[in-house]
């Protein structure tokens, strides 16, 4: 998991993303390479009369594609927390589902609460609305971010 922190005049922004060592281009090349090799082999056997190899190759490539798509969706997840003026804005993207929450810095309360993750998540709440962040952070990163955000909200 990677957290990037940017600071501009009067604004701080933290963005957490899953670690991803495969670039989209490399992923495309990988799929194309395996597809080409697999089609070459199954095409050769098709010409030799063993046409049943082709559907199995197709099924397998479909499974590979679905797995990589699932990874792609997971890799595009992010959590962005922006602190600017008197607004605290949280934008989360998980598996294509984007949500945004906005809180007043004067009223926002930050706490660590047990969620569906194995370790406590950071909960931000105000006026009956709440959101959880930290799913894309490791526990030490979450601890660091929690301290950082609490300190800035207090100041």
């Amino acid at each position: 998991m990677a957290i990037t922190k940017t600071e501009a005049a009067g604004a701080q922004e933290w963005t957490a993303r899953p670690n991803c060592s495969l670039t989209p281009t490399a992923r495309r090349n990988l799929v194309c390479g395996i597809l080409a090799a697999s089609l070459l082999v199954s095409g050769g056997f098709l010409l030799a009369g063993a046409w049943l190899v082709l559907p199995f190759a197709g099924l397998e490539l479909a499974a590979l594609y679905i797995a990589l798509r699932a990874l792609d969706r997971a890799d595009s997840s992010s959590e962005t927390i922006r602190l600017e003026g008197d607004r605290l804005t949280v934008t989360t993207r998980f598996l294509g589902d984007a949500r945004q929450y906005s809180f007043s810095t004067a009223w926002a309360r930050v706490s660590l609460e047990a969620g569906d993750a194995p370790d406590p998540l950071i909960c931000i709440r105000s006026h009956g609305r709440s959101c959880q962040v930290g799913r894309l952070m490791t526990p030490p990163q979450r601890q660091q971010f929690y301290s950082d955000l609490s300190r800035r909200l207090r100041s």
């Binding site: 930050v110 706490s111 660590l112 194995p118 370790d119 979450r142 929690y146 909200l153």
Partner: peptide, 17 residues
């Protein structure tokens, strides 16, 4: 006011299985 409702231990969730 910010409150922490859990004591954060980085290894707290490790036995959760």
């Amino acid at each position: 006011m910010n409150t922490a409702t859990h004591t954060l231990d980085p290894h707290a969730g490790h036995a959760h299985h």
